[in-house]
């Protein structure tokens, strides 16, 4: 991504509560591109490229909103600037969703 030089994240719809990291983010200031209202946000933990960043505090049980639609539900409270993925959110359809390893994406229940 040529936007990779400055830490940046992309917010698709104005009422989204998450944005997508366009490069690997370290804690610190992140430029918001897309429909974002405020031009900057503070990442509070490392967030890998393509992963989501909370744009505001999200309560447990609240919908995660991207593209202006709900893409899942928070399984615990998520602070502004935090990484939003399988460890703190889940699908409302796929029952395997809450049993996945957040880093390698495979089921923690599968035994080889």
């Amino acid at each position: 991504m040529s936007a990779g030089s400055a830490p940046a994240a992309f917010q698709i719809s104005a009422n989204d509560n998450v944005a997508t990291a366009l490069c690997d983010l370290s804690p610190g200031r992140v430029r918001l591109l897309g429909d974002a209202e405020s031009g900057e946000i503070e990442a509070v933990e490392p967030i890998a490229r393509g992963h989501k960043l909370a744009l505001r505090h999200i309560a447990a049980g609240e919908n995660i909103v991207k593209y202006g639609v709900s893409i899942g539900r928070a399984s615990k409270p998520i602070a502004r600037g935090c990484w939003v993925h399988l460890h703190c959110m889940g699908s409302m359809y796929d029952e395997k969703s809450n049993k996945l390893d957040p880093v390698i994406g495979i089921s923690r229940e599968t035994r080889y």
């Binding site: 989501k52 639609v69 899942g72 993925h85 796929d94």
Partner: peptide, 28 residues
């Protein structure tokens, strides 16, 4: 169909890449 086969169209590679749920992948 997804419920019966207990499989949604999302893979470990999608999760590693940052997609968290089938709903997110679907909208994309």
């Amino acid at each position: 169909y997804c419920r019966i086969v207990r499989q949604y169209s999302i893979s470990p590679g999608n999760f590693v890449g940052g997609l968290s749920t089938i709903e997110e992948k679907s909208m994309g």
